[in-house]
Amino acid sequence: MNSFTFTQATAVAGAVQDKAAHDDSAYIGGGTNLIDLMKENVARPTHLIGLKKLGLDTIENLPDGGLRLGALATNADTAWHPEVEKRYPLLNQAILAGASPQLRNMATDGGNLMQRTRCYYFYDLATPCNKREPGSGCSAIGGYNRVCGILGTSDQCIATHPSDMCVALAALNTTVRVSGPNGERTIKFEDFHRLPGDHPERDNTLEPGELITGLDLPEKGFSKNFSYLKLRDRTSYAFALVSVAAALELEGTLIKDARLALGGVAHKPWRDKEAETMLIGQRATVDTFRRVAAKVLENAKGYGANTFKIELAKRAIVRALKQATEMNQEIDTNAFQNSNP
């Protein structure tokens, strides 16, 4: 680790000012990603601004029926908050599918959005990587890319965003609240993370110095029919190869509303609104789900070691939608006979 100074901020405005006053400075939440990257010399901030004393660790009901997650609430406190367990169980499942209990006790909700890719070459200073060193090249294209993306990639970078929590947040239409040198603003979740394009060094659309202060969940939580399905190399404590957040609103077997987002496949949580539209108004059957899965992966591109993800993602979509549907006791389960996706 390089040397740096540390201050504990006690107010949002002070933190934002402190950030602007120091070149190469960084906010630090739980530190579980930043300190790791600093130990690897991938991140080398010369000044850290601690956020734990900002008083942003609360989780509160909003007047419009939604729920506000403070940016400094830990992932564990969020997953196990009674309102989240009851109204947003998809979020509870996605958080608990990620990392380990120790890490979730440290990791903050704001930090989770900001965590960087797990592409091996991003961590390996000896290899070219456009995300770490713009213009140096991409070692994953033509290299070992088992963990890399298949959707929305560019010829500059094929990395994925590794978060589980963010896949659920994308499906749930979350709004990100930020505060920066130019005041406060909100960002729709789908606009928060970006695709790599020609600037893979930029993971998201935060402006320099902006601080995430909270995440607003809208009232609708799809608490009856949902599934977070995570597929990985071991059953726990590993990043997703492919994950699916599926949420349905059903009337019998009729799909009234649907949400579908994927993790582990792209530079951002991959929400597919066209697929959602295809689902709405249809019967919840495996045939419907297969058609939708084919559509989501229509433009997918494999890079060799990760090409298996295309078929894996299709099957995961079908299974997650099926799991979400089957949570509803009233449905006609005959619709699922002979379906082993």
Partner: peptide, 18 residues
């Protein structure tokens, strides 16, 4: 792993100043 205010964390990814 150590306990901070009763909660388990990884002390290797945390700074003492925090």
């Amino acid at each position: 792993t150590v306990l901070v205010d009763g909660k388990r964390i990884n002390s290797c990814l945390s700074l003492a100043v925090m």
